[in-house]
Design a protein around this nucleic acid. Structure first.
Lengths: 186, 186
DNA sequence: CCATGTGAAGGTATTCACAGCC
DNA sequence: GGCTGTGAATACCTTCACATGG
């Protein structure tokens, strides 16, 4: 992946900085907030650094996630291999459409949305909302009731949830709408 | 939409702040950087405020966008009605799969990816990249060659592009991976 | 000698309180 | 009276330069 690290045990803040496109002191300062990871004169041990960062980001344990809404976007998420990289595992999907219920997409079975209440007993603490706009708040409410602790919401709407549940909303259209701001004309 | 504004011409910074969940002085300060929009004792004229903000964000003109990669995610984007809200119009899609080329999804025809070079002459200045990881950089290069000015990239990889082209990368798995950070345990 | 970690300087953003206008 | 726009005060984050440790 990072060619500069091939066959090396250590990496300097400078190399890391060049790779991600920032300055070396930013790397050092950021790391220092969480403790002393590096060795002066040598650099950072790559393996131990990765382990430390994963622990800080709480990515050291695999967490189970439930997907709600198996439309185009939901299907894309089920097909997406990238989640495993970050210690996330989509183990179940829900939908309202009887035609979809019972099917298996990428090894994940689609269940009736009424079964959403069983999440807690199954040890699932994350929810992914990929439903139409109008169903957004309702779906979040159900997930909260089911004891979920974090929600990634793709529905483009204002969401109310108790403070104990962290909601991250990803409005894809709004992200795209940021682009024109950087474009002088045309 | 915003029930507090129904039948009203003006809205106060307090109402706006409550609605989006911030403090009233933040609203006023932010607006003040771009000029005087409001009337003391009255508030902000809703219609004129919306117009001003759209102009600042360069959302007052409709821009054409091209989608590259019509997989699950690409299909979801084509089906998504939200883009129009922000003055964005996906007018063409590209793919490499001969089975997909020629089909029409949501009124948008899928063309052979080799036709990507015709973007400039068609007045298309935005690109949306929804291709697999490995094709990310290649696709971005082609879009840049085709004269695109802004790119929304869903491929989870490091992208190099000239400074004149603004690239916004949206790594969905990474967004989901932010959630565990806010969750004490479980 | 090399690269880290950090105190200090500088700059930027947030928060406040109030003068001024409708 | 009510609400805006803004200077002042505060907190925060970024940048730098260097002492310290391997």
């Amino acid at each position: 992946m990072l060619s500069a690290t091939q066959g090396r045990e250590h990496i300097s803040s400078k190399s890391l900085a060049d790779f991600v496109g920032v300055n070396s002191w930013q790397i050092r300062k950021d790391f220092s907030y969480f403790g002393d990871f590096g060795t002066p004169g040598v650099g950072y041990n790559i393996e131990s650094l990765a382990k430390q960062i994963k622990k800080i980001l709480r990515l050291d344990v695999v967490r189970k996630a439930a997907l709600v809404g198996v439309g185009d976007l939901g299907s894309a998420l089920l097909a997406y291999p990238g989640f495993r990289t970050y210690g996330l595992d989509i183990v179940v999907a829900f939908d309202v459409d009887p035609k979809k219920i019972g099917r298996t997409v990428n090894g994940v079975e689609i269940e009736n949305i009424t079964r959403i209440a069983t999440l807690q007993e199954r040890g699932i603490s994350l929810g992914i909302v990929a439903v139409p706009h109008a169903a957004g708040q309702f779906t979040v409410d159900k997930l909260v009731e089911a004891g979920v602790r974090g929600i990634l919401n793709f529905a483009p709407c204002k969401i109310d949830a108790p403070r104990r549940v962290k909601v991250i909303t990803l409005d894809i259209a709004m992200e795209l709408a940021r682009l024109p701001y950087y474009m002088p004309a045309g």
